[in-house]
Design a protein around this nucleic acid. Sequence first.
DNA 1: GAGGTGATGACACCTCGTGTCGTCACATAG
DNA 2: CTATGTGACGACACGAGGTGTCATCACCTC
Lengths: 186, 186
Amino acid sequence: MARWAPDTRERLRAAAMELFAERGFEATTVPDIVERAGVTRRTFFRHFGDKREVFFGDAEIPRLAARMLEVAPADMSPFAIAWSGFHTLAAERFEPRRREMAAARRVIESEPALRERDLQKQADLRAVLAEGYRARGVDALRARVVAGIAVDLLQTALEQWAADPAGTPLVEHLERVRREMADVLA
Amino acid sequence: MARWAPDTRERLRAAAMELFAERGFEATTVPDIVERAGVTRRTFFRHFGDKREVFFGDAEIPRLAARMLEVAPADMSPFAIAWSGFHTLAAERFEPRRREMAAARRVIESEPALRERDLQKQADLRAVLAEGYRARGVDALRARVVAGIAVDLLQTALEQWAADPAGTPLVEHLERVRREMADVLA
DNA sequence: GAGGTGATGACACCTCGTGTCGTCACATAG
DNA sequence: CTATGTGACGACACGAGGTGTCATCACCTC
């Protein structure tokens, strides 16, 4: 029998999520969270650098993206790599958890502090993509532009998907947004 | 003779900028700033909602953008409006202050807190553009997509321009980025 | 059983941001 | 000339975010 319950991090996360759902993100303080989880404030900051970090789990998307860029065929075009990666992500990560993802999106969009962090996450992904492309020998400007378009495309499609009452699959939204983008720049 | 020097806000801004230049943004605290400006901490927060707000002046770009969307000819395509607006902005706001703008860009890119705020500013512009387009009767998805592309295009061009040692004009970078984007999505 | 390790509590500290109230120069009205 | 605002500011208090430091104690290893 341990001195402390062994799942402190998970208890903190659960307590935080409950409170966020009950009273909203802004209205719940770290003291509130740690009280419910039965630990001290200091312990919270040992597990999460930030109150926002409880919401956004560990950044696995950029890691997956970097991996995909490494293993993609050398003759594959930069955009095609991203496009294919998005389809994989849609099928494996997003579509199976549609309800949770959509709910989280709505919370993010209603809380300025979370919106800010979300934008930062997008910028991180953009940087990872651009760096990965350059590592593949892509011209720097081209790398930056493809990364920018890819992230904006994914983000826009996710917004539409999360707000779509008809339940259209994410891949369909991705395709629609891609067509719109191509159309605008034609 | 006034009880207080009448230019408190400007003194605060100047003191802050000096300190940012001397020790960096993160390392200077509001107490530091107010001490140099000769006022109290409370007074600082009466003039600026935030430490970051000292850096980014008032958001005039979104206001200008909204105005341009209102006065643009009804038959002008959404992207053409943004494109034309960017050329105006480049000529009137950016090119004349290249040195300052480039220096500010470098500071922003080196300070996480400022990067975060910068991303927020971009999101604000994106929202203003999308809303303006919808007000002109543009389809919601199309409005969102054009706004996203336009902001990303401007942002990318600004980055290239600020980092360009050759001093190529901003309009030239805008054109390059536009071509790259069109190429990627072709 | 003698350490070593690692997660936690306890405590102190600073910064951010905000509410509230008193104060005093200045302008204006009577 | 007096009275009465009206701002801008200082003084004070407070709660939340975050971080450094040290003691503690279950558990593990030798």
